[in-house]
Design a protein around this nucleic acid. Structure first.
Lengths: 141, 141
DNA sequence: TGTTAAATGCGAATTCTTCTCGTTTGTACA
DNA sequence: TGTACAAACGAGAAGAATTCGCATTTAACA
């Protein structure tokens, strides 16, 4: 149940929070922007303000429930954090997101950083590509 | 000379453009935001407007003279494009930027994308780390 | 069920970036 | 070398994404 995760994060279990978590669970193929979440909420009775959406997403991020990514396009997008790091392939046409993790790349990164005398904190690897799904072409995100 | 590159890009050779190109040449250790460029220009007599800085940087980008990156922090940063792709290590403390290119990683990326049935267009790999330069700690960008 | 701190919604404020428009300035060509 | 004209400029308004401030509502827990 959603309640538990929110409670575990030390947050009150409120309708906006439950709804937002629910939405993120339903949309795993395409990461959602705050605006996206807001619009989806409007479309389903719940009357949640945009400021609340931003607030909740940011809190969820701090709590480790969601991850924020800065793909191209200026606005942040969010995805459920189901633990475990992964990188992304993003379709430039339809916004479809595919996850992947590659140990060869991960290892090389650590090596490179160490060689340069840095201490790796985190990384962002995004492959921008064109996917080949039937419903894709031109459905510009 | 700066003039040539600007001219070759099909742009008029104006003072703002010359100055901005000059600045980018002088700051290769740390990518500059439009704001950074604007402030540096103020600090050296030239009276260039912020709008012009954005305009010129965007034009330079289209012309292939500079590259725009979206590191963390919300604002775009720019670097001279000396041809040849590379990825970045960014110091979270001082903003220092180190470039690198790793063929192992490049190759793996192509393989992964192909396996998933995508056509790779471009990618962004940024390693966020802590550097160990003397003047670094806490000089929060 | 009442109290209280936390959360919400709204609109105003910020921040980064782009646009508009009247003025200035390279550039080509006489 | 002067002139005409499109291109470029500066300043401030406008726009997009995000955050803030505050009065009101609500979940939590006694």
């Amino acid at each position: 149940m959603d309640d538990l995760e929110i409670r575990k994060a030390g947050l009150k279990v409120t309708l906006p929070r439950i709804k937002i978590l629910e939405l993120l669970r339903e949309h795993t193929d395409r990461h959602l922007s705050a605006e996206d979440v807001y619009k989806l909420l409007i479309g389903c009775e719940s009357d949640v303000g945009l400021a609340t959406v931003y607030r909740v997403l940011t809190q969820f991020e701090s709590a480790g429930l969601v991850k924020r990514h800065n793909f191209e396009g200026g606005q942040s997008v969010f995805e459920l954090d189901r633990g475990g790091h992964h990188d992304h392939i993003v379709c430039l046409d339809c916004g479809h997101v595919e996850e992947f993790i590659d140990e060869v790349i991960e290892k090389r990164q650590r090596t490179i950083v160490k060689e340069k005398g840095f201490a790796l904190e985190k990384h962002a690897l995004i492959l921008y590509a064109h996917c080949s799904r039937g419903n894709c072409p031109n459905r510009n995100r």
